[in-house]
Design a protein around this nucleic acid. Structure first.
Lengths: 347, 347
DNA sequence: CGTTAGCACTCATTAAGAGAGAGTGCTAAC
DNA sequence: GTTAGCACTCTCTCTTAATGAGTGCTAACG
């Protein structure tokens, strides 16, 4: 069976209608609402073909058709055409980024809120990836005898803090010496570049201060290496409850159980190719039973052209992909822009 | 009408049974399951009285009775007796705090997870109140010309960070001078004590460095004052979906809409008297329409006997108060203990 | 040969009605 | 004051029937 232009028209009509109404679409409806110039009977024949091809399916014998996940995929790949955002929508986004904020966390939260408010789906925003951000400064604060607070500032403004234990006799002066050396040596490096050669340099540098040498190594090991996790903003869960597909509590539970587990969510987001612009994952394409009826639209935002983190939304498979893709794309650009502005010169 | 011992017994039986089954309780059931030594007819009479007094109500004519919110209140105040946790339960909590962590955030998250896992309700944990924690150290990091990262470390290990703008010509050396003075002057003070008199001292101290004086004041104003918000851990939302009362999506939405708004949640939690041990708020007592069918069991954890923050759970009014109160109480103690251990000597 | 009208057929959804069952309130007896 | 008995009420469930949307098939049409 081959896909011809009319089949495409019919499929497009079915998907468009189903996205709008959430009800199975019948041949009559298509003939009436979408002007294909043929009778319902003809459309029925086409529908029968489309069903055989796997693009649509019937909930039960005497119902209309609904798009299958394959159908949505075909739609996303070949049929859908980007909807430009309305002036009103662009305005909302613009406004969202208008307020001047300087902390990276605030921008992340703001983006997430905006995204979920606009789309009415759950929104996910990841902070810039630590592996890709570079080292800016380390501060060692002696909290107590024996306890040191390590504060690492990355060039993205991200902070990592960590409390580690050290011998009681270590003084703040020792710590300052160490941080001085570390700052000099590590400045501008990405975390994954902090490797053996470098450690040797530091070792050499500090060899005049034999007494604190071990401490410094210990610090690097435990203070820097640990907790290199990115944070994830997740919000707008309430929104998805308004979607008719989530009137079934079981589905809500399934989705929520996944969203509450940050690692799962992370792996889901990371499965998206940072190279393509906006990635759409439909239902089972995500390979997770819990979200087999959900779709995900995500994109990476960039700083200096390098993809740094992911933003996106998760909702039912029945979503207005054309529009959601546009929103996510637009937000990604706005976010990239805002971040670049924030970090101008920090690199 | 006066409450006598038998009425109490009947009320207790109704509440106990309803908590367990979520079904309206009939006179027969009580006579059979709870050994009051009287016939269903007698119990019916008592029930009729209890209904008139407002402690129980009938969903419809031929149904059993369910406790009213007033009934729950009476139960919590007079009838319920604390259930000791089982060895198994205590073990779970003990285990939860066994893993050694040093960052306050981790303890908070751990407590929240534990609380929601055990109770199967939504858990809420507030970080130690900033107003009550005292100043430990400030670090000023020059990120860029003109941009300073202010890191304030409180004695609870809580960090506040803030990026502020300063004149371009400010150097890291200037910043170090300022932080030195600030650290000396502010050490050990609570945020609300940082008042005018103190500012004058700092002013005097820094008068030798006229050029950075304004900067210092600016720093204090904007770097310290801002963002003095406590964080709230919220988790286990999925759990409450398993409660039969939340099979109605509308209720879920109502509750979630409240929980997603952090300020509302905060005001709710702060409405609880830190003096009493465990506070129970039932339904409309919370004065919020969204949670008129929910109850809240919260308590404050303490450091050095001073209430520092709040932990608690939110679930349907039909909850096993006796047990939940015990769990929350127990967790509060464990948390207080853990925190005290963490901050031993930090004060 | 593609298209279309007509029609029988399927199946979900809705409404109405009939029991069944749970539980009450009342009354009269103990 | 307590209890047994009983009529009554109301929900819940099951059945049945009617409705209607939508299909698939067939035969006719251009």
């Amino acid at each position: 069976m081959k896909m011809d232009s009319r089949k495409q028209q019919v499929l497009l009509a079915i998907i468009t209608d189903f996205i709008a109404t959430a009800e199975p679409v019948g041949s009559r409806t298509i003939a009436r609402k979408y002007d294909l110039g043929v009778s319902p009977a003809t459309i029925r024949n086409e529908m029968s073909d489309l069903e055989e091809m796997g693009y649509i399916e019937q909930p039960h014998t005497s119902a209309g058709r609904v798009p299958s996940q394959l159908g949505y995929r075909y739609y996303v790949d070949f049929l859908m055409q980007k909807k430009d955002l309305t002036a009103r929508e662009e305005e909302i986004i613009r406004r969202g980024y208008e307020k001047k904020v300087r902390q990276i966390g605030q921008v992340i939260v703001q983006t997430g809120e905006l995204l979920s408010q606009m789309t009415k789906f759950a929104a996910v925003v990841m902070t810039p990836r630590l592996e890709l951000s570079s080292f800016k400064r380390v501060q060692l604060v002696l909290m107590n005898p024996g306890q040191v607070l390590v504060i690492v500032v990355m060039n993205t403004g991200a902070l990592q803090t960590n409390i580690i234990e050290v011998p009681e006799e270590v003084s703040q002066v020792d710590l300052d010496t160490i941080s001085q050396v570390l700052n000099a040596k590590l400045d501008g490096l990405t975390l994954d570049k902090i490797k053996v050669t470098l450690l040797r340099e530091i070792y050499y540098e500090l060899s005049k201060h034999k007494n604190i040498l071990d401490l410094a190594m210990h610090l690097i090991q435990n203070g820097l290496a640990a907790s290199r996790e990115d944070k994830i903003y997740l919000g707008g869960i309430m929104n998805i409850l308004n979607q008719p597909e989530f009137h079934n509590i079981e589905r809500v539970k399934a989705l929520l159980s996944l969203l509450e587990q940050e690692e799962l969510l992370r792996s889901l987001l990371e499965s998206c190719d940072p190279k393509e612009g906006v990635t759409v994952r439909i239902g089972r394409e995500m390979n997770r039973e819990e979200v087999k009826d959900c779709s995900m639209v995500v994109a990476n935002y960039c700083i200096d052209g390098r993809p740094m983190g992911t933003i996106g939304v998760i909702g039912p498979t029945r979503m207005d992909y054309a529009w959601v893709v546009s929103v996510v794309e637009h937000m990604t650009l706005s976010l990239s822009e805002t971040m670049e502005k924030m970090f101008k010169g920090w690199r």
